[in-house]
């Protein structure tokens, strides 16, 4: 590798765009923090409000409700995606035919426009003519008021996340498993381990780093979930599915509170930074190594 040299024009040309773009990252941070201390509604003028917005935020019961909802959503969805996703990878590893068809199908939810997926599920969850209730009735489960009642709406959003992202867990796990040497499996079988035990005790630990990375990505992405939920429920009914990003958006664009919106954004950005810092201890090193 070359030592940096000031004659190296190429290098500077290469890095200038990055510096320019950093303006675009640092500006928003500064701006969000700045306006978070102002009382400022759309169409109005900013009035300095001190920590007033923050007091409002931390005394707002809806804020705590949103925080709790977002966390529950994240834990439930990611937990389900890992169980289901790794289970599916287990099936994929142990079949000999049809893998290509299976992986093609699993790609679909991942590339489907999330906003559009939200709309399709909104139709499918329809209490009257929705297909979800119809298929449930076939196996003897009575129809649910999916997007109408709070708990059911919450569960619906989790189901959609599981639908969209389980394939990600499956495909990454499967890809990781196929890179392992065949002797590892054979050795474990010969040592007397069952297929399941081999998978759980020998193979999964081998792709631990990979699993950390996707766990990390899934936790981050569920915490900032917006697209599918917004087009499916709009955060409702009431505030039953108003997760952090939606809470932030609604305060800004529906209630026109720019100052308060910035306060929420500031809090959320800091929160995500903390989460990323904590979680990336293990995942980060793995990403750099990859």
């Amino acid at each position: 590798m070359k030592k940096i040299s000031f004659r190296s024009k190429t290098l500077f040309l290469a890095l200038i765009p990055m510096i320019y773009l950093y303006g675009l990252v640092i500006y928003p941070f500064a701006s969000v923090i700045y306006y978070s201390f102002f009382s400022y509604d759309i169409g109005g003028t900013p009035v300095f409000n001190g920590v007033g917005n923050y007091i409002q935020l931390f005394t707002d019961p809806q804020f705590y409700r949103t925080l709790g909802l977002t966390l529950s959503y994240s834990i439930l969805a990611v937990g389900a995606e890992f169980l289901f996703g790794i289970g599916l990878a287990y099936l994929l590893v142990h079949i000999s035919r049809g893998r290509s068809v299976a992986t093609s199908i699993l790609i679909l939810p991942l590339v489907m426009t999330p906003a559009v997926a939200g709309i399709i599920w909104r139709i499918m969850f329809d209490a009257g003519f929705g297909h979800v209730n119809f298929y449930l009735s076939l196996i003897g489960i009575p129809g649910q008021k999916w997007l109408i009642r709070p708990t059911e709406a919450f569960i619906s959003t989790v189901i959609v996340d599981v639908w969209q992202w389980t394939p990600f867990v499956t495909l990454v796990t499967f890809a990781g498993l196929t890179t392992l040497p065949v002797e590892l499996v054979e050795s474990a079988y010969i040592d007397g381990a069952s297929e399941f035990r081999t998978f759980k005790d020998i193979l999964l630990p081998r792709i631990r780093a990979l699993l950390y990375i996707i766990l990390f990505l899934r936790v981050i992405d569920t915490l900032k979930i917006f697209d599918t939920v917004y087009t499916m429920t709009g955060g409702g009914p009431g505030t039953a599915t108003t997760y952090m990003s939606i809470f932030n958006y609604l305060n800004l664009m529906t209630f026109y509170h720019i100052g308060y919106g910035c306060t929420i954004a500031a809090f959320f950005i800091v929160l995500m930074n903390v989460v990323v810092t904590v979680l990336s201890k293990k995942a980060g090193a793995a990403l750099f190594a990859a």
Binding site: V32, Y249, G261
Partner: peptide, 14 residues
């Protein structure tokens, strides 16, 4: 990893 809707707010103002 940034919460994109939050980061977009200052862009909106700008």
């Amino acid at each position: 990893f940034l919460p994109i809707t939050s980061v977009a707010i200052p862009f909106y103002i700008m």
